[in-house]
């Protein structure tokens, strides 16, 4: 990542299957990752449902795209912020989320967690640091 890299945050606020937002958002992130920017994702409101583990669409005839979140690390998207309040309101905790990790090239390829649960103030601050924020 060059010094000219801009900070991009993708804010995800929709559940995965009811509308196309989540899948489109994920695709935009993967495509955008080719541009070598400093990318992060935030999961707020129903967006936290995108990261719920154990999704299985086998009986509902839709493509289960939850495995694709595991590829984000390969695309160097390693900062996934989850809004604590949204999670709590929906009866979920960190244990309900997929375990997403990335290999830290600068630290002997150690596997590290990508998901970080953040509170309101921290998310507010992160958003203020961005050059570009895109909502899905």
């Amino acid at each position: 990542m060059g010094n000219g890299a801009k900070k991009f945050m993708y804010v995800n606020r929709r559940a995965p299957y009811g509308t196309i937002y989540a899948l489109e958002g994920l695709e935009v992130v993967l495509i955008g990752a080719a541009f070598d920017q400093d990318v992060s994702m935030a999961f707020v409101d129903d967006g936290v449902f995108q990261l719920k583990k154990g999704q299985d669409t086998g009986e509902s005839n839709m493509k289960n795209f939850s495995p694709t979140y595991h590829a984000l690390g390969d695309y160097e998207v390693t900062k996934l912020y989850v809004d604590r309040e949204s999670l709590g309101e929906r009866g979920l905790s960190q244990d309900d989320l997929m375990e997403l990790t990335y290999e830290d090239e600068d630290d002997d390829y150690k596997e590290k967690p990508s998901i970080r649960i953040v509170d309101r103030k921290e998310l507010m601050k992160l958003m203020e640091e961005q050059d570009v924020i895109l909502n899905f």
Partner: peptide, 12 residues
């Protein structure tokens, strides 16, 4: 939609 509510919660 709660877009306004969430915006108000997260806007500086």
């Amino acid at each position: 939609k709660n877009s306004l509510g969430t915006c108000l919660r997260l806007a500086k």
